[in-house]
Design a protein around this nucleic acid. Structure first.
Lengths: 87, 87
DNA sequence: TTAGTATTTAGATATTTATCTAAATATATA
DNA sequence: TATATATTTAGATAAATATCTAAATACTAA
């Protein structure tokens, strides 16, 4: 749960997630949306992966990333649980 | 929104929020639940306040903190919006 | 007014984090 | 095989952050 919140705490990483709402993208396609070096984006993608927020699959020379919504469910529960004092 | 996610990215601050689910507490009462100095807790409380996650009111020499659930609503929307590609 | 308690502010420090460039690895293609 | 492209890893650096102690502020009560 800590990795999840840490992953969400960076605005670039949240933007990446919003991008991936459209569908899966390669690391390079993701990087081209930002004014940040590819290694930095790669690092952000790794943190998102560690947090379980994205899946990845290698196809040829490309690595595709896509949202993993099942962990978003966990986040949803955490938030709801905070809102309702009697769950 | 960034202040909100930044505030949630620290485990101590998330624990403070969980504590406040029970009801309002003074800064000192909150601090006594942690092995961290009072000034550090005070700093965490300030960040939670800046993020809009808690309200505070001074009563005599005490400062009481309580959850502000209306901002939690915003967080909820952000998460839901991430889950549903067609909102 | 003086002493005591609650909280925050200030300033310092160590750790974490976001970023970069250069190099390494993996794959595709000429 | 040699070259080009995609991505990650390594290592360095600067900025952000969590923490501490000491001091300041605000209030209570003797």
């Amino acid at each position: 749960m800590n990795a999840l919140f840490k992953a969400l705490s960076d605005p670039t990483r949240r933007s990446i997630l919003e991008l991936l709402k459209q569908g899966r993208l390669s690391a390079g396609d993701i990087a081209s949306h930002f004014d940040i070096s590819r290694p930095s984006i790669s690092h952000h993608l790794e943190l998102l992966f560690q947090a379980g927020l994205v899946r990845r699959s290698k196809e040829g020379q490309y690595v595709y990333y896509e949202l993993n919504t099942s962990i978003v469910e966990d986040l949803l529960h955490w938030v709801i649980q905070l809102k309702n004092e009697k769950p």
